[in-house]
Simulated scan of single mutants.
Amino acid sequence: MKFLLGIDLGGSSVKAVAVTPDGTTLAKFNESFHTARRLQFVDTVVEIASRTARQLGSEPARIGLSAPGLASQDGQSIAFMPGRLDGLVDLRWAKPLNREDIVPVVNDAQAALLGEVWLGAARGLTNVILLTLGTGVGGAAMVDGRLLRGHTGKAGHLGHVTLDMDGPLDVCNMPGSLEVQIGNCTIGERGKGRFATTHELIEAVRKGDVQAVEVWHRSLKALAVAIGGFTNVLDPEAVIIGGGIAAYKCLELIRRLRERGVGVRCVLTRGGAQFVTPLSVAALSEDKVYTDLFSLTDESEMGHIRLSREADLLVVAPASADFIA
Rank of each mutant, 00 (worst) to 15 (best):
I254T: 07
A27N: 02
Q55C: 08
S32N: 10
D209V: 03
D235W: 00
G87E: 09
D86L: 15
P82I: 08
V239F: 03
N232V: 11
G193H: 08
G208W: 00
A16E: 11
E59P: 00
L148S: 10
I305K: 01
S219V: 05
A238I: 12
R51F: 05
L97A: 04
E237F: 08
V289N: 03
A325Y: 04
P104A: 02
V171T: 10
A282P: 00
R306T: 05
D144W: 14
I7P: 11
G120R: 03
P236T: 08
Q211T: 06
V42M: 07
G83F: 04
L284D: 02
V215L: 08
H304N: 09
I63S: 03
D235T: 03
F3A: 12
M302V: 06
E299T: 03
G242F: 07
D74E: 12
N107R: 04
V281M: 01
A226R: 07
A18P: 03
Q73S: 15
A317I: 11
D312Y: 06
V89K: 13
G303I: 00
V117E: 03
T126R: 10
L147A: 06
E47T: 13
A212C: 06
G176N: 05
A140M: 01
I241K: 04
R258D: 12
G271K: 14
A246W: 01
D8V: 10
I78Y: 01
A321R: 02
R256C: 09
G191S: 08
P278E: 10
I78H: 05
H160F: 05
L169W: 00
G120T: 01
G150I: 07
I182F: 04
G10K: 07
A224H: 14
Y248S: 11
H304G: 01
K2Q: 07
L314W: 01
L163A: 05
V233C: 13
A204M: 05
G10V: 04
V289Y: 00
L147Q: 11
V215I: 15
A111G: 06
I129D: 06
I7Q: 10
I187L: 06
D144L: 01
A109N: 09
A71M: 07
L293D: 00
L147P: 08
G228T: 11
L131D: 13
L130S: 13
R92K: 14
L251R: 10
L234K: 09
W118K: 12
S295T: 05
A94V: 06
E189P: 05
L91M: 13
S320E: 03
T132D: 04
I48H: 01
A61S: 15
A226C: 08
A49T: 00
V233Q: 12
Q274T: 15
N127D: 11
V45F: 01
G120F: 06
R265P: 00
V106Y: 09
M142E: 06
H160N: 09
E301T: 05
M165S: 14
D108P: 02
D287Y: 02
L251T: 03
N98R: 13
D235P: 00
F230L: 14
G136F: 11
L223N: 02
L158G: 09
L169N: 10
T297C: 02
